[in-house]
Design a protein around this nucleic acid. Structure first.
Lengths: 315, 315
DNA sequence: CTGTTAGCGCGTTCAC
DNA sequence: GTGAACGCGCTAACAG
């Protein structure tokens, strides 16, 4: 591997000083149009690109951000990451990935390591157990997704709106006895918040609530589907698509039941297996875009720490 | 943010010279036990960690590797990445992620960018269209997964073995008329290779082959499932779990058919939806581990470019 | 407008 | 064994 050429070489090759090359590189003013063009031509010709490490050492930033997902095989998070990556690359930032596995301790450790590495920013997929304290050092260079924390930038999903949207649709379709298959309250957003939104709707519309919060897995959805059924029940809202898959399997095995399912989260898999389900999309892709944009704003322009809520859409 | 302390500070604080600290840092010999301990104590006390950028500038390596997945939402690839990440972190390497979206052009572009960035190594999830030529510059610091290329290190799945294992099992179960629902030959491994393995088995065992290769999606599996059926057919092998999900749905809607499904790839989703399916696991997690180990070996110890094949297991 | 100079934090000779 | 000096590629301050 031949030694890469440096800013000095470019300077020599284009007959100028190093600092002029540096100025051109950073689009600084104070360089005549002619020299700028000449230098740029030489750089292009030799395919020159400055050493990241050297710049990082002078400035502060090594232009690296971290994305901490809860689980690499979480479909929803992947959809968000998918839109994040190009956004980061477009700004010249390298995204490194980590997996928190829903462990607050692991996150604390990872954040520590990232701080020592002098990383520029972090996108963290939140979950129950991450406390504002552990995020404190990152306040100005962190965006948290799926959770909000006071004083931090965040991109959240509209749990409340999603539940309302689904219930309203079911209501319009004539359903008056609607059960709710949910996640335990220990999960703030997908658990408690969605349940509360359901209860609020019931109260407003004189619907008798019927709730079960068995867990997060397909199996739980399958086994506890009947928990939310009364003889009058004609529809059930599932708090997550995973639960909905469980419920869907139960219904498939009981074709006589004719219960309308609704679900927060609508994946291609669900569209294929259960096209009849009414689904609400939380806008993962959009969340990724917004999170990346927000973080870049904070890093490069001290943008204010906004709390963003992604609008829901019905499928 | 207060200015981080440097090797110089540590030197001053422990009453030695910079180079001694440097030696301790790199575990070099030629430092008395006493001073080493003293310096290490100081480093620990102040939580010192050397600047990556500065080291990168001196040596070659910035200790960054890239992982190029085809799609972020590919479950199989995620399982491999999941085991890769800790392996990289354990060696002090930061893994940055990219998505190729099955586009050879994109990969070429990404590899170019990575080369300019002076990245240490790449794990590439292969697919049809990536040519050895574009990988050439990376020969010594690349591991390709799911494809093999002559002269490159690779970690491959045992397509042949998986098909054989499944067919053999079905055969043992008494099935003699077994169809094959596959992926088009344009995909070398999951398409052609698996089909050929099927045909070879049929030939050896006097089974009449019955093949369809409609595509890769669930919908294709669903719509073309009947293509591989004859009145005698009692079992069907699906080349991928995605196809199997499609076929499974078809069977669920036709409970009278009683056809035994078998599939390459066995996910929790499938275990839940279709526990009756005979599945072969390709060993994604193991592949991730091996790939990371192989790459680290190549980078740090010029390990030879091995072509690794992960053994299949039956579920 | 442009070239020169001085470091950034670290690794690497060299002398001591 | 250990420290002082030098330079990596780049940016920032200062001269011209």
């Amino acid at each position: 591997m031949q030694t890469r050429l440096t800013i000095k070489d470019i300077a020599r090759l284009s007959g100028v000083g190093k600092s002029t090359v540096s100025r051109v590189l950073n689009n600084e003013s104070g360089v005549s149009e002619r020299t700028r063009e000449r230098v740029e031509a030489v750089m292009a010709q030799y395919g020159f690109s400055p050493s990241r490490s050297a710049r990082a050492m002078r400035g502060q930033s090594d232009k690296v951000v971290a994305i901490i997902v809860t689980r690499l095989d979480s479909l929803s998070e992947n959809l968000a990451v998918q839109t994040m990556l190009p956004a980061f690359y477009a700004e010249g930032y390298d995204p490194i990935m980590m997996e928190s596995q829903f462990s607050p301790e692991l996150v604390a450790e990872q954040l520590g390591m990232l701080r020592r590495r002098n990383i520029d920013g972090v996108v963290l997929f939140g979950f129950t157990g991450v406390t504002p304290e552990m995020l404190q050092p990152w306040q100005s260079s962190l965006v948290i997704i799926a959770r909000d924390a006071p004083g931090f930038a965040s991109v959240c999903y509209d749990d409340d709106g999603a539940v309302q949207l689904l219930l309203q649709r079911l209501y319009e379709l004539g359903h008056r006895h609607i059960g709710f298959l949910g996640v335990p309250d220990s999960d703030t957003t997908s658990g408690m918040r969605r349940r509360e939104a359901y209860m609020a709707f019931c109260q407003r519309n004189g619907v008798t609530p019927r709730i079960a919060q068995p867990g997060v897995t397909m199996v739980k959805g399958y086994e506890h589907f009947t928990d939310v059924l009364t003889p009058e029940t004609t529809a059930v809202v599932c708090a997550t698509d995973t639960l909905a898959l469980g419920a869907g399997k139960y219904l498939q095995e009981h074709p006589e039941m004719h219960i309308q399912l609704a679900s927060i989260g609508y994946t291609p898999l669900m569209a294929f297996l259960h096209p009849e389900i009414v689904g609400a999309s939380l806008g993962y892709a959009e969340a990724g875009r917004r999170a990346a944009a927000q973080l870049m704003g904070q890093i490069t322009r001290q943008a204010e720490l906004k709390q963003i809520v992604i609008p829901v859409t019905l499928n």
